[in-house]
Amino acid sequence: MNLLIVDDSLIVRNAIERCVQNGEISSVFRAENGQEAVEMFAHHRPELVTMDLTMPKLDGLQAISRIRSIEPNSSILVISALNSHKTAMEAISRGACGFLTKPFTEREVGEALEELAAHARRIAH
């Protein structure tokens, strides 16, 4: 399985990548805004995506919609500092599978990625 990490902060992208312990994840792609995320997704078709919400060019909510229109079965986890229930619900109604609020610990992200991978496996079967 492949993972696409979308966040405008290099520090956060690095932090999330460090959390990848799942042996099933073979490649990690990185994008720093929604626009780039959609292009990367269309090209590499990763099974798993972590998505920031507030980003330049194209924001996370719009990126989720576009990615889901390319691949309705993609598994997207929102990782955002935006702690608004409304936005979270909006992200989920557009097709996100879960929501993790920043700041996060490596363990939290690691476990969340496990869950996301398990979810993707169920869909694939």
């Binding site: 986890l77 229930h85 979270a88 619900m89 989920i92 097709g95 996100a96 599978c97 879960g98 929501f99 993790l100 609020t101 969340a112 869950e115 996301l116 979810h119």
Partner: peptide, 16 residues
């Protein structure tokens, strides 16, 4: 409604 949405992972919405 979110909880009844099968695309949503139960454990990954506890935060919200």
């Amino acid at each position: 409604a979110t909880l009844f949405n099968p695309n949503v992972i139960e454990k990954l919405i506890a935060d919200i």
